[in-house]
Every structure is written in structure tokens, then in C-alpha cells.
Design a protein around this nucleic acid. Structure first.
Lengths: 152, 152
DNA sequence: ACTTATAATGAAAATGGTTTTCAATATCAA
DNA sequence: TTGATATTGAAAACCATTTTCATTATAAGT
């Protein structure tokens, strides 16, 4: 899943905005790339720090935020006090999915079934919203809240 | 929308769980009742404090949390660092809506159009998920991400 | 009504995720 | 290679939320 040029696929995206390719950024993207779960900034920091102890938490936050703004990473807020991040269209990761969130134990489950109906709905709605609000839609998130098997 | 007993509708709900009816709780619910927007804990505190300066922020948080657990209030997390609260089925409140979030300037726009198609999709999907994961679904959220008019 | 067990409250301190500051360092265009 | 400047890391600041704890208020039982 390597890029077609001399560098990985994401380098062009960064350089296109004037951003520089740095070791911390490479590492952080690599970590996200290897992870098939939504991780917190602290999760990323711990793994990054194991590999390269010179990397700071601050840089993790900054990089995650930057990647989110570029649409490379998607940021989630599940309401448990810390944000989670996930590579969009991660070739090594899970496929597109959404979340089922338990209001009591706060467990987050992924689901990726029933996406056929979703696609139709999302496409239609995104098109209308895009036109009405002159908004360029690049991604979406759908979450269902309630009580999981153990908590109900 | 008044209760059938001697007190407002929500008093039975509280007392049913052994909770007491107190002045702070009455005030906070009244404030939520008068508001047609999702408000932060600080918003509620400011208004409550104007009316009754003895009320503390702590109590606002505690009450909001309690009401959320009782299903009287719905809590939202938009990812801007502070939670928002809204009375469920508030006669004065906004109707059901979703969000359009700009990845660059982080503006959050509400939209409540195109909910007819949504209803169909959500109903179908929720039913399937509920069955498959034995999950009791009580709510959902749909967000679209991208670039707003000014940022694109 | 009066007592009384205990739920609820408020002030202040603690917590914890995230952001800012700032001097040092690294990247990349020239 | 050089230099302008983007990036970095550590520490401090920030800020929403939670906890602690002594005080006060509610409502159940009398």
C-alpha cells in the first residue's frame, strides 16, 4: 500500500499544504496505520514514545490535529472525556464502520454491516447538504447510543 | 405538559429513584425548559446563579448528570471541549437535528432538513443492529465533516 | 409538627485532557 | 551549504469536570 512516487501516499498531502515531512509525523502516521482501532492521543503517544522516546505528547496532539484538518485522520468524541483518532480509509485498517455506544459502561462497539442502505442515504443527504450549505463534505460519522447487552 | 399529581411531571421521576426534590434541581430544570438550544453546564450555571446566587457550579454538573442518567436530559459532545445539554422532548426546544462540522475552522452548523429520508434509514438500521448485537438503541447522531463555505 | 438519618449542597482543591509558550532544533528551498 | 522558518519538546497554563468534606436541607417516621 505504498505510494506510487518516491514517498508514502500521505507525504504528497502534507507537502501540498507546505507542511514538512518530519520523523515524528512519519512515526505517528505509521502507528495509526498499524492500528485497526480508534486510539486516544495518549495511546498514540505511548506507542510513539516506546519507539522514539524523544517524541513529546504535544507533538502527538499537534500532528493529530493537523491530520484531522487535512482529512487524513478522523477525530471522534464519544463523551468519555478523551478524543479518539482513526486513519480515514486506512488500507491496513478496518473498513468503513460506525459506532454503537453504551451510555452506561461507555463501551464502544464498531459495526460495519448494513452499509449498503447507509451508502444510499448518505450519498443523497450529503448531496443535498452540500448544495444547500455550500459545504464540501469529505466524511461522515454515524453513532447509535443506548444500552449494551450487559447493561440493559 | 403539567404533571397529574401535585407537582410538575418530572418530580415523580426523581422521587421514583429516591432522589429528593430540591430548589437547585427545580431551578435547573426550569432553565432547561425555557431554553431552546443546547447549553453548556456553564451556561446553565450563569443563568441559575443570576436567579439564585447560592447555587454552585458543582450542583449544576451533578444535576445535569443525574438528569442525563434518568433520560430526562440528553448530553451532547461536539468535540469543542465542553458538553451540551438539552431537555428531551422539550416543548420549547429545537427539533431533532444533526451536524455539519468544518474541519478547518471547527464551526458546527445544525441542520434539520432531509430528516424524512433519515428516519427511514435510521429505523431500519437501528432495528437490525438492535437485533444483531442485542443492544437497546435509544438515540443516534449523524455528523458530516468537511469544509464550510468560507474555508473551502 | 418534631426528630433525625441521610441525601444534597457549595467552596475549594484536585484531576486530567488539551493547549500555549518559548527557546532550541530540523527541514528544505535557494 | 546556508538561512529563513516550520517544527519540536518541556514545562506551564488552561479549562471543563470531578472529588472532598464540612454544612445544610429534605422527607420519612414518629
Amino acid at each position: 500500500m505504498r505510494g506510487r512516487g518516491r514517498g508514502p501516499w500521505w507525504q504528497d498531502r502534507l507537502q501540498g499544504t507546505g507542511a514538512r515531512i518530519t520523523a515524528p509525523r512519519e512515526l505517528i502516521i505509521e502507528i495509526l496505520h498499524e492500528t485497526d482501532d480508534h486510539v486516544s492521543a495518549a495511546d498514540v503517544y505511548i506507542r510513539a514514545h516506546q519507539i522514539n522516546p524523544s517524541i513529546g505528547l504535544t507533538t502527538v496532539y499537534r500532528t493529530l490535529d493537523m491530520l484531522t484538518q487535512l482529512g487524513i485522520v478522523q477525530k471522534f468524541d464519544f463523551g468519555d472525556g478523551k478524543a479518539r483518532y482513526e486513519l480515514v480509509n486506512n488500507p491496513n485498517g478496518k473498513k468503513h464502520h460506525h459506532h454503537l455506544i453504551c451510555l452506561r459502561c461507555k463501551t464502544i462497539m464498531d459495526y460495519s454491516e448494513f452499509l449498503d442502505e447507509e451508502l444510499e442515504f448518505v450519498k443523497k443527504t450529503a448531496g443535498k447538504l452540500s448544495k444547500k450549505y455550500n459545504f464540501e463534505i469529505t466524511d461522515h460519522a454515524i453513532s447509535f447510543y443506548g444500552l449494551c447487552e450487559r447493561c440493559r
